[in-house]
Each structure stands twice: as C-alpha cells, then as structure tokens.
Design a binder for these strands. Structure first.
Lengths: 142, 142
DNA sequence: ATTGACCGCTTGCAAAATACAAGCGGTGCA
DNA sequence: TGCACCGCTTGTATTTTGCAAGCGGTCAAT
C-alpha cells in the first residue's frame, strides 16, 4: 500500500482501464462467463482478463464457481463488495454523460436514468436486485 | 476510443493509479504547485506527474497559469469538469471506508463525513466552495 | 472409443507505460 | 555574479500491456 488514503485503496484495486469494465459487464450486461467478457466492445486481451479475474477474486469483489448446469463452464458473479461499486460506476457514467460527446444507445440511457434517480437513495433498489441476481447461477434467471 | 460506453470514456482519462490522486490533492489538500504534488504520501514520480498534468490539462480537467505573485511558479487549478469529479472521489472514498481496513486520521474523517452528507444533493455545496476556491490563485486564499 | 468442437485459460514476445535517479534551463534574490 | 529554487526533461531498468497462438480438459456426437 502506498498510503492510508481511502481513495488510494480503491485505486490500487480498480485503478486501471479494465477492472471496472468487467464489473460493469457483470452488473448491467448479465455476463457471467469468461468468453462473454472477451466479446465486450472494448476488446480486453485474454491474458489480461485472466489476470484481472484472479485479482478481483482475491480482493473478494467477484466470486468464481462451477456452473451447475454446464459443467465445463465457470460462472463469475459479484460479491456484495463488488455490488457496492455500483455508485462508483454510476458516478463515472454521469460525469461522462455530461462531458463526453457520446451518443447514448437506448440501453445506456436506461442505466444512466437509473443512476440519476438512485444516487444515493435508490442505489439500494438496484443493489438488492443485483444481490438476488448474483446469488443464483445464470441458467436460473429469466 | 475503445467504445462509446460512458464508463469507458471516464476510464480512458483517469483510469490509472495517479490521476485521481492529483485531483484529490487539488480538491482537499489545497495543493497548487508542481512540487506540492510530489510530496504526497503515495510518492508519484516526477516524470509521471509531468505527464499527467499535461494530459489533465489537455482533457480540460485542470488549468495551468502563472502565479501572479511568485512569478517563477505555476499554479494548477481545477476546471468545472475537474470539480465535477467530486462525486466519483466521494464514492470511491466511501466504498474504501467500508471495505478497507484503514485507520482514518481526523482530516480524512471530515472529508468522508462530507461525502456521506453530500451524495448527491450536498455535492452542490462543496462544489460551489471549490469553484470559488479555484477561481483565484493560492496566495489570496485564507 | 474416437473425434472434434468448445471451454477457460497459458505462453511467448514486442511495445508501451512505469519507476527511479540524475540533471537541466530559466527565474529571482542576495 | 553566484546560488537556490522552480518546473520539468532525460536516461535507463523494470513492469505492465497488447497481440497472437496454442494447450489441456470436458462434452456431445459418431
């Protein structure tokens, strides 16, 4: 650790270009499998993905289990610690919406709408949904 | 740009281990000069600091001016775009406070107390203070 | 039982970013 | 005229990233 600053603690974990994107994929895009993360628009390299998944599990932000239905697959889900990064992702999203010259597609629009409503109170709502969603394997979801 | 995701826009700018620490120093610790940033606990290297300051200015998150009083000095201050990163820093701070095993010194305690009160409404208060503070050079402040 | 198509990764290598130390040109003051 | 201090720059070693290829294991079909 470089210092005892709380901000610094967070940055030492997810202060890079990829970690929060993986968490985003888990939070909003329903991705659960290794090869699903690989298909994201930003195009993470497979060795970096492997590296980050190990790190995020070590930091207890995600957990890793065997898929009960497709036995050769491995399911990645968020822990509560990971789900609690929701406000961070919302904040960055809202900031970018304000300053980036980006056309939002409908899906992103919905997410940012949620962000606006939910900082901070409504975070609880999405948070509960995520806890429910991440408690069970992908196959059982609607 | 790797994608049109708002989160990704933010990460491409400040998704590293140093940028937000510089912004933190500007926001909360009253630092304005190159050599002040160098003295922070995390110990950024001088070439990295120079690199980040150029980048942050290019992204219009900070601005760079000559100090009117000490003419050999250069004053760095936050733009509105930079000040608007306040919620991001607050969110990361609160998350870390919850999950990191860190003893908070009194100063940090005050900042996080502010964060708790101000997400999202009270952000406006601190934001205005920062705008006022960053409008004038360091020498004129109390 | 064998084949072949996935699955989550690993490996090798080049390029870029980071970390560390030293020093440089310009300004201001004695 | 010297000297200290200012914001950087430079050089070099190390680490991280980016990219491509491939590997061992599982599963389903033949």
């Amino acid at each position: 650790m470089r210092s005892d600053c709380p901000l610094n603690y967070g940055l030492e974990i997810f202060g890079d270009k990829w970690s929060l994107l993986i968490i985003r994929d888990l939070m909003f895009f329903g991705k659960r499998y290794y090869n699903e993360f690989l298909t994201s628009a930003e195009g993470i390299a497979t060795n970096l993905l492997a590296d980050r998944l190990v790190m995020l599990e070590k930091e207890k932000i995600i957990k890793k289990e065997k898929d009960s239905q497709h036995k050769q697959k491995i399911v990645y889900t968020l822990t509560e610690k990971g789900i609690d990064l929701l406000p961070v992702i919302f904040c960055i999203g809202l900031w970018s919406e304000k300053y980036a010259d980006i056309k939002l597609n409908p899906g992103r629009d919905i997410i940012l709408g949620e962000a606006k409503k939910s900082l901070p109170k409504g975070v609880e709502k999405v948070r509960k949904k995520l806890i429910a969603e991440h408690g069970k394997p992908k196959g059982n979801r609607q």
